[in-house]
Every structure is written in structure tokens, then in C-alpha cells.
């Protein structure tokens, strides 16, 4: 295989990989009436704000760093790298301020957790919530 072919194959593989992943979205329980704005959501996902602006305790759920789209999610909705998000939560947890947040590996588990908890908010791939009435997208 010559160099051009290798490069072409690589580019094609990248393009396929790129299109395979849907956009990431933030979801809450369908019963949650919140109209939290992007800044509120950022504060909630960092544990600075512990309530939704409308009402009710906010329970942010983090995603495992082994979930491929977590980095995309933290940059898009929190404006920070996964390492910075980790450092932020480590500071809160090890100073005893907050309970350790749930950390979820798969989209299916994440959707399930939010559908069962009216206070939860987490990040999933948009594909995972198609046709699901138990959860609602609050940011995309």
C-alpha cells in the first residue's frame, strides 16, 4: 500500500467515525418543568448550583471518562475539559461539601437513571432518547 492509499483510508475511516456519533444533548426527567438557561446548566453540572431555577433539587449525573463523547459534552455544556470537570468535583467531594455524583457509563443507563429520578440531569447521545417520553432534552 502506498502512502496516498494509507492517507486516503485513514481519512475515510475518520469521516465514517465522525458521522457515526450523533450530537450530545442534556436531558432531564419528563416531569421536570425547568427552563434553565445555559449558564444555570453549567453551574448545575459543576455543583455550584444545587437547584433548578424553576424549583426542585438538581442532581447532576456525570458520565464515565470511558464514554467516548464525555469530552464533547463537557466542552459543549460546561466549557471545560473532562480533567477540569474531574478536578472541580474532586474539590467538592473531598472537602465533604457534596455527595459524590453518580457516574454512568452507557447511554442506556443514563437515560434510565434520568427517567427514574425527577431531579436528575445528565448528558447523552441524541440517538439514545429518540422516541423516549420519560425524558426531555433541555439543551442541545
Amino acid at each position: 500500500m502506498n502512502m496516498k492509499k494509507i492517507v486516503a483510508t485513514f481519512l475515510l475511516a475518520s469521516a465514517v467515525a465522525g458521522t457515526a456519533q450523533a450530537e450530545v444533548v442534556l436531558i432531564v426527567n419528563a416531569s421536570n418543568p425547568t427552563n434553565a438557561n445555559t449558564e444555570d446548566i453549567k453551574r448545575i453540572m459543576l455543583g455550584r448550583l444545587n437547584q433548578f431555577p424553576a424549583d426542585g433539587i438538581a442532581v447532576p449525573m456525570l458520565r464515565s471518562t470511558r464514554w467516548a463523547q464525555w469530552g464533547e459534552c463537557t466542552q459543549k455544556f460546561i466549557g471545560k475539559s473532562p480533567s477540569d470537570v474531574e478536578r472541580n468535583w474532586a474539590t467538592r467531594v473531598f472537602s465533604g461539601q457534596v455527595e459524590p455524583p453518580k457516574v454512568i457509563l452507557t447511554d442506556a443507563e443514563a437515560v434510565q437513571a434520568v427517567s427514574l429520578n425527577p431531579n436528575a440531569i445528565t448528558c447523552v447521545s441524541a440517538d439514545a432518547v429518540k422516541g423516549n417520553n420519560a425524558v426531555r432534552i433541555v439543551a442541545r
Partner: peptide
């Protein structure tokens, strides 16, 4: 951080 709750019920 790993959290055992995430491996609990609710799957």
C-alpha cells in the same frame, strides 16, 4: 472517581 451507586439497580 468511580461510584458504586452507578452499578446499582436502575438498569
Amino acid at each position: 472517581m468511580s461510584h458504586p451507586q452507578s452499578r446499582g439497580p436502575g438498569r
